[in-house]
C-alpha cells in the first residue's frame, strides 16, 4: 500500500473532519494532512486461468489487415472511465477514518473532439468509511454532505478485526466496489439510450445489462490474471502489433460470461511481454466472433494520439486518458 502526504487537508477532507468532530465529539481527530492511498497494486495474485475457446481449436494469433492512417475508423462514440481516491484522515485510538471519493463519466466524441456526455452528468461521490463499532457507536450518522459506510463488518456481515490495516483494506474494497457500481450505472444508461459502441476502461462483466449489450466494449489494461493455459503463453507473447488472439469465453463467479480476446496495439520489441497488450471484452453473443476483427481495428485506431505522459500509455486509449483527466479536474 503506497501512501503520500499532502501539504494540508483539502476542502473535502476538512469538511469530513468537521463532520466527524460534530458527530463524534468524544474522539480526537487532528487537522493533520490526509494520507492518500493508491489503489492496491497487488490486490489479486498473478495467475493463469483456463478458458474455453470459441474461435479456433487452439489458441492462435490472427493478424489484422493493416490499414493506412487515412482509412482508419472507429465506431466508438464514447469513452467511460471511473476514478477513486482513498484518504485516511485520522487514526483516533488507532481506528482509521477513511474518506473515499469515486467519480465516473463518459466523454463523447463529436467532430473529433471529446466532450462530456449530455445524457448523464459526470458523478462524484464522497463517503466516509468508518468502523463504527470501534468508534464507540453503532448508529450510522449521515449528513447532507457525507454518507457514512460502516466498515466494521465484512461482505458476509461478520465482524472484522480491529487491525487498522485490515480496516483500511476493507474501506478500500468498499470504495472500489462503489466505483465499479458507479461505472456500471453509466454504462447501463449508455447502452439503454445510445446507438454507438462505448469504450469502457475495464471489464464489462460486472453488470448483466452491460455484459449482454452489443454496444459495450471493455478494454482491460491489467493482466494480473491471464486467461489461457501455460501452453498458449508463447503464442500470446509472440503477438505482434496489430495481431489478436483467438476468441475465448471468460466466466467468473458473481460475474457474467463474456467473449474476450487479446490484442497487441503497440510493438513489444525490447519491452516486457505484456507491453501494448490489451484484453477486450464484448457480449457473448452468437455473432461475437464476427465482430472481433472490426472492434480490434477500432481499438487499434484509438491508440492515437498517445496517452503520454500516463505511465500506462502503451495500453491506454487517448479517450480514456481524457476521461481520467476530466474526472481528476472535477473530483
Amino acid at each position: 500500500m503506497i501512501g503520500s502526504r499532502n501539504s494540508g487537508p483539502d476542502l473535502s477532507s476538512r469538511a469530513a473532519l468537521t463532520f466527524l468532530k460534530s458527530e463524534f465529539p468524544d474522539i480526537s481527530v487532528s487537522d493533520a494532512p490526509a494520507v492518500v492511498l493508491e489503489r492496491p497494486a497487488a490486490a489479486d495474485p498473478p495467475r493463469l486461468s483456463a478458458v474455453e475457446l470459441i474461435e479456433h481449436k487452439k489458441f492462435s494469433s490472427v493478424p489484422l489487415v493493416a490499414e493506412p492512417a487515412a482509412n482508419r475508423t472507429s465506431g466508438f462514440g464514447g469513452f467511460l472511465d471511473g476514478a477513486q481516491k482513498v484518504q485516511v484522515l485520522a487514526y483516533p485510538k488507532g481506528v482509521p477514518i477513511v474518506l473515499g471519493t469515486v467519480s465516473a463519466g463518459i466523454r463523447c466524441r463529436v467532430e473529433r473532439r471529446l466532450i462530456t456526455w449530455k445524457e448523464r452528468d459526470p458523478a462524484v461521490e464522497r463517503k466516509l468509511y468508518l468502523p463504527l463499532a470501534f468508534l464507540g457507536g453503532t448508529r450510522l450518522a449521515s449528513s447532507e454532505r457525507f454518507e457514512v459506510v460502516d466498515t466494521s463488518a465484512d461482505r458476509e456481515g461478520a465482524g472484522v478485526d480491529a487491525h487498522p490495516l485490515g480496516l483500511v483494506d476493507r474501506a478500500m474494497q468498499l470504495v472500489q466496489e462503489n466505483r465499479e457500481s458507479l461505472e456500471n450505472r453509466f454504462a447501463e444508461d449508455w447502452c439503454d439510450t445510445e446507438g454507438t459502441p462505448l469504450f469502457i476502461d475495464g471489464g464489462i462483466s460486472g453488470s448483466a445489462r452491460v455484459a449482454t449489450s452489443g454496444l459495450a466494449v471493455g478494454v482491460i489494461k491489467s493482466h494480473r490474471t491471464l486467461y489461457l493455459e501455460d501452453s498458449a503463453l508463447p503464442t500470446l507473447f509472440a503477438l505482434k502489433k496489430g495481431e489478436r488472439s483467438s476468441v475465448f469465453r471468460v466466466s467468473a463467479r458473481s460475474r457474467r460470461t463474456v467473449a474476450s480476446w487479446y490484442l497487441r496495439i503497440r510493438s513489444a520489441a525490447g519491452q516486457d511481454p505484456l507491453w501494448g497488450l490489451v484484453r477486450i471484452e464484448i457480449a457473448d453473443s452468437p455473432d461475437a466472433v464476427s465482430r472481433v476483427d472490426e472492434i480490434s481495428r477500432w481499438v487499434l485506431a484509438e491508440s492515437s494520439p498517445l496517452s503520454l505522459p500516463d505511465g500506462r500509455w502503451d495500453k491506454m486509449a487517448y479517450g480514456i486518458r481524457d476521461a481520467e483527466e476530466f474526472l481528476r479536474a472535477i473530483s
Binding site: A69, A70, R72, T73, S74, R109, R112, R113, L114, A301, E302, S304, P305, L306, L308, P309, Y318, G319, R321, D322, E325
Partner: peptide, 28 residues
C-alpha cells in the same frame, strides 16, 4: 494541448506528419 512534449506527438505518429491528421480524436 495536453501534449507534454512535441516528442510524444512524433512518437504517436511514427514520425509521419501526414498520418497525424487522421487521428480519430483531437487532443484536448
Amino acid at each position: 494541448t495536453d501534449l507534454q512534449t512535441p516528442m510524444h506527438d512524433v512518437l504517436g505518429h511514427d514520425g509521419s506528419p501526414s498520418d497525424a491528421g487522421y487521428a480519430l480524436t483531437e487532443r484536448a
